[in-house]
Design a protein around this nucleic acid. Structure first.
Lengths: 267, 267
DNA sequence: CTTGACCTTGACCTTGGGTCAGGGTTCACG
DNA sequence: CGTGAACCCTGACCCAAGGTCAAGGTCAAG
């Protein structure tokens, strides 16, 4: 009776396809595990097919459970061959890693949520409020967008002056003259860079700004490092390339302010 | 003043390293995004360095937010260039995917938790209870292990007989004679396969089993397909290769049962 | 005797980058 | 006015964890 069992070549175990279905993975994955030495190669039958016995299947189940939990394949081998206590410790480790991953993903989901509902991902609430106020004051959407971008850049590149920038916007928006001058400045985008009205406007803007000198004073703790200047440059001259007239306007205003003793970084 | 800006080659924007630090990624990653066309290559300065302006930085921030949320890089490009409403829909989609991922990870963590606390990942509670009972009845740990493996295999490979297998164990463990015979059977592992005591033991075991014929009747719904026999074989002859005497004992018991009219699959 | 479903090996593709090699640029210090 | 450190450039290869394709052998059923 038993000899018959061994003389029947087909019954010596499961084929790779059956074994793979057993642990719910693909045939290719099983072979991958063999190549990595994670699961020993089983005996082959007379035609070269792998034949899986119970021990192989159990091993596959164990490997799959760990791999499915995110344990790198390279670690699974030694882990399964370790003593029970080390195994238990390692399992706990894996569980902690999983928990961390879950929390990180939840954080990302929140970020995305905020991204979907405006710019709350990139800017603090105070800045969002200012942007909403800009829209209420009937500034053009393009202007609001440009200011939003400038805020984002300032926050990231020159955090020391971000608060100053924000405070400026917050306070100046209460000043109807400033609002009016700024809207006119935005219209200047379409002017010729040599338009004489630009100089006039620059003088008016500078005078208005100089009305509250406290808001023009950079913090004593000036930024450091050789890239400080280029960071200022990126923020200060954001989008100027789109409108040369604006570049000229800004340059003139800066000149006025410097002439009045205000410390404005060059570039 | 402005000419000076443009005549100063170094101030035309941030270098790749500064830009990368800005969005908190590596230089290599930024270049990777360029190669994928996700972020347009910025202008180069006179020495061939990439120089990043505000628009580039904003784009990098957006790309990073999406990539960080798990959106495949290949999709990010068209997503960012899509109209706002399609973008919003896509964002919602991404959020759903993230939620799914989180739930899957939590499921894995649970699985791992059960894996760490015994075999509850692989076996139903009823089976775990039986295994605990085996330990209480003072069966050797090796025997318990072997039975556990047999249960796992049976559940996966021959689910139609798994319940029968389990019911058998549950009921027979109340029978002191069965317990005694089984322990003796386990000791037979170390006997010579030709030991005459094996035949004796096989008769006793068969007689005991035949005491409750209901537990020996396979379900009418027998398994299907050409691999049914090999599946039975794997379960029935699990670990026999380790002890030829056990193989002989099992064979003899099967013979007795068949002689008594019990339907036992061959192989 | 053919058909279709398996099995075998081997070589290359994928994603999101990391690492190495070989060379050019810029900057601050002495 | 060097010189060293810290950048930058390109290009080529490497990783996990498999997937896909190719070219052929094997098996059971009609």
């Amino acid at each position: 009776m038993e000899e018959e069992r061994y003389s029947h070549p087909m019954a010596e175990g499961l084929t790779i396809g059956q074994a793979a279905a057993f642990v719910d993975i693909t045939v290719k994955t099983v072979r991958h595990y063999h190549r990595l030495g994670l699961v020993a190669e089983p005996e082959r039958d007379h035609s070269g097919y792998r034949r899986y016995g119970s021990a192989d299947l159990l091993r596959l189940v164990q490997v799959r459970a760990l791999a499915g939990a995110g344990v790198p394949l390279a670690e699974i081998g030694e882990l399964l061959d370790a003593e029970p206590e080390r195994f238990a410790t390692a399992l706990d480790d894996v569980r902690r890693r999983l928990t961390e991953q879950i929390e990180e993903l939840m954080g990302r989901r929140d970020t995305l949520h905020r991204l979907a509902h405006g710019d709350r991902a990139l800017l603090p609430d105070r800045a969002c409020a200012v942007l909403e106020r800009l829209a209420e004051l009937d500034f053009s959407p393009d202007y609001v967008t440009t200011q939003r971008e400038a805020l984002v850049l300032s926050r990231a590149l020159t955090p020391e002056v971000f608060d100053l920038f924000l405070a400026n916007l917050e306070h100046r928006l209460d000043d109807p003259e400033f609002v009016e001058l700024t809207k006119r400045g935005w219209e200047a985008r379409s002017w010729d860079p040599d338009d004489p009205r630009i100089e006039e406007l620059a003088s008016a803007v500078a005078a208005n700004l100089l009305g509250v000198r406290a808001l023009l004073t950079l913090p004593a703790k000036r930024p450091h490092g050789p890239d400080a200047a280029s960071r200022y440059g990126v923020v200060n001259h954001h989008r100027e390339d789109e409108a040369p007239s604006i570049a000229r306007l800004n340059g003139l205003v800066e000149g006025h302010l410097r002439a009045a003793g205000i410390d404005i970084p060059r570039q």
